[in-house]
Design a protein around this nucleic acid. Structure first.
Length: 680
DNA sequence: TGGGTCACGGTTTTT
DNA sequence: CCGTGACCCA
């Protein structure tokens, strides 16, 4: 027991030893948050508290795994592993055992955002599916059902959305699908409808811990209240200054008002930072102090002053990328391990010029985020096949693969079948399998035989799945040839390797859990994210959102321009932007470079930009910093001008804050500002 | 059925 | 600028 607490500071120890009643741990960036709550968990278990009565909720699998490893590493033998998982995983587990109370079967399948949009689109709506999808998400997270949404709607557009919402809910119920929001909303519905269930759950989990509490939304808050029905043993950890998911429904009020929501809350602030140098922390503190809606805390450095924060000025994004790449190259040459270097940006669109710059300089990088593995077309096709195996009546997946790989079935044929199945009140699969012999009356002979073959293959695959899920993959490829199909399409190399990776993943998972069914596998997959793909040998580049919870010795933040960061647009919230700035800065341990460009090429046009107000607010723009100003244009470069065409640079000159080039356009010399031409 | 062309729109995204 | 989706024609 002593061992668990010995390496904690006073505040951390204070938090870890708190047992009963609500506890709010306000943990500043780099203050040992994970260490504190894992120690608390280990401490509780060491006191003899039943592991099965504890529940720790996180937002990512990665965080859950890390905490589990660390907590279990502190105690010798645990009789039963404590439950540490994401909110959504917890919801999934709960629904597996209790969804019957809502009149649904527990072989449901979890769909992702892309599926959700496709379903909405299939209703033939004229509004954008994405907009409706996010609106529905908002409703669900505010516990508004379709009926209420309709009543509340004033404008015609919202009435329309409410009706689509109703249709969508019916569709999910009919196909026994569950979306991400349902993983929280449906458990809440059960707990809210049946008080005895809330009491039972609460009795089962008597010690609740929640990580990243500043990012919880209203629904998660209400769910937590239900879990705490019979006790108030809830310990939350978070940092109001790091709340960066407001746009997705996270309610910063949850953490700001925690003490008034849960009576007799004990508050512990962790303000000693073990991550960054004094200069970095000073910039972070100064920046965040410009926010008004915060509880207020100051990070104290436990490290030395460190080096100055560097501010980099460039004339355009290519030059910025080159400068950053050059600096990174120097670091690597000086012996810095690339894995300790990262470049962050506010919006993903900025990654392109950066990637080009890194490539030019020959720096290998690892991009975190981007298109998710399981969201790639070819992987989603395979997932659809498996979904059909798990649930033959999943029309949604059926439609996706009915002609993929191509088997000569066109829009007309498919529409006819869908309509007939609909009229017969059957799923597409049911309809086709009952009418195997008279399909020719509906569609052409060729199509009928293609459909019959397809149906038979699906049935065969289903039989294989029910006898041995491990063999499903080989049979799938043998019967449908998805891999063979993609092998002859463009990007074959990448697609085939994705397919192989998916096949490998499937086999691995089933090998480890031989009793696992196909729908278990699918649901597990849906909750997976590929955050933990950070390569050991390369530098990392990613959005600031993706960098949350990470730290790097040498950090670059690019694109600090008004309009880009802070990002200005509708729905943008300057305080949240500032918190993002705070998150970005506090990722740095030793050296921080902030970069901005005077212009940027974005959405097909070049825009002149002013530097970000955050630079001033963080106090890094005036004073001791080093301003660097260069251009990537060199004498002899070939350039292209919109009007004058291709020319060669004969002279590079600096005029005030700009660079002027003397360019030879087929014999004619012209003076042109560097921002008006591009390299060829 | 599917390839070709044109218009459009384009933050951040742990699950 | 670049990727997506609607629409048209062979």
């Amino acid at each position: 027991m002593e061992k668990i607490l010995q390496s904690l500071n006073k505040a951390q120890k204070n938090a870890a030893q708190h047992i009963d009643g609500p506890l709010l741990i306000l943990a500043g960036a780099g203050s040992g948050k994970t260490k504190t709550i894992t120690s608390r968990l280990a401490y509780l278990l060491s006191l003899g508290i039943d592991p099965a009565s504890t529940l720790t909720l996180t937002f990512t699998n990665k965080a859950a795994n890390e905490m589990r490893d660390r907590a279990l590493g502190m105690i010798e033998n645990v009789s039963y592993p404590p439950l540490l998982c994401t909110f959504h995983k917890f919801g999934l587990l709960y629904l597996k055992f209790h969804i019957e109370k809502l009149g649904r079967r527990n072989n449901f399948v979890v769909i992702d955002t892309d599926d959700k949009k496709r379903i909405i689109k299939s209703f033939g709506v004229e509004l954008s599916a994405g907009l409706i999808a996010s609106e529905i998400s908002r409703y669900k997270n505010n516990l508004i059902d379709p009926q209420m949404a309709l009543e509340k709607a004033e404008q015609e557009q919202y009435k329309k959305i409410a009706r689509i919402y109703a249709q969508y809910e019916n569709y999910l119920a009919d196909n026994n699908l569950v979306d991400f929001d349902d993983l929280l909303a449906l458990p809440y519905k059960i707990l809210d409808t049946f008080e005895e269930e809330a009491i039972a759950l609460s009795e089962r989990y008597r010690y609740i811990m929640v990580d990243e509490y500043q990012d919880t939304n209203d629904l998660q808050y209400k769910l937590l209240q239900k879990i705490c029905t019979t006790h108030n043993n809830i310990c939350v950890v978070g940092d109001d200054d790091q709340s960066i998911y407001g746009w997705r429904g996270a309610n910063i009020k949850n953490i700001l008002d925690f003490s008034s929501s849960f009576a007799d809350t004990k508050v512990v602030k962790l303000e000693d930072n073990y991550r960054s140098t004094t200069k970095i922390l000073k910039a972070a503190n100064e920046l965040i102090e410009h926010n008004r809606g915060r509880i207020g805390k100051i990070l104290n450095s436990t490290k030395g002053a460190g080096s100055d924060i560097e501010v980099l000025e460039s004339s355009d994004e290519n030059q910025e990328a080159s400068s950053v790449a050059r600096k990174i190259k120097k670091l690597i040459e000086a012996g810095v391990n690339p894995r300790n270097i990262a470049v962050l940006y506010r919006i993903n669109a900025l990654s392109r010029s950066l990637e080009e710059g890194l490539n030019r300089t020959g720096i290998a990088y690892n991009m975190v985020g981007g298109v998710k593995f399981y969201e790639r077309t070819e992987v989603k096709d395979l997932i659809s096949y498996l979904r059909i195996v798990a649930n033959l009546n999943d029309d949604f997946s059926f439609k996706r693969i009915i002609n993929r790989p191509k088997r000569g079935l066109g829009k007309v044929t498919i529409d006819k079948i869908i309509k007939s199945a609909y009229d017969a009140k059957q799923s597409i699969f049911e309809y086709l399998s009952y009418n195997q012999d008279n399909l020719e009356t509906l569609v052409s002979k060729k199509c009928a035989s293609a459909l019959n073959e397809f149906i038979q293959n699906i049935q065969t695959l289903g039989e294989v799945a029910s006898s041995a899920s491990y063999n499903v993959i080989d049979k799938l490829e043998e019967l449908f040839g998805v891999k063979a199909y993609y092998a002859q399409l463009p990007d074959a190399l990448e697609r085939v390797s994705n397919i192989d990776e998916f096949f490998g993943l499937y086999r691995d998972v089933i090998k480890q859990n031989p009793q696992m069914s196909v729908d278990d596998f699918l649901n597990e997959l849906a909750l997976q994210s590929d955050q933990d793909t950070i390569n050991e040998e390369n530098i990392s580049i990613m959005s600031i959102h993706a960098a949350k919870g990470l730290e790097f010795d040498h950090l670059f933040v690019i694109g600090l321009e008004e309009g880009f960061f802070p990002l200005i647009g509708d729905g943008s919230d300057i305080e949240e932007e500032r918190r993002l700035g705070y998150v970005a800065i506090t990722r740095a341990k030793e050296a921080l470079t902030l970069s901005y460009s005077q212009s940027r090429f974005y959405k097909g046009r070049r825009t002149e930009l002013g530097k970000s107000r955050f630079l001033n607010e963080a106090g890094v723009c005036e004073g001791s910093l080093r301003l660097e100003k260069t251009t990537s244009f060199r004498k002899g470069d070939l350039v292209r001008h919109k009007i004058f065409g291709i020319g060669r640079v004969v002279e590079v000159a600096r005029v005030k804050r700009e660079f002027k080039l003397k360019i030879n356009f087929s014999g004619t010399l012209r003076d042109i500002l560097a921002t008006f031409v591009e390299k060829v």
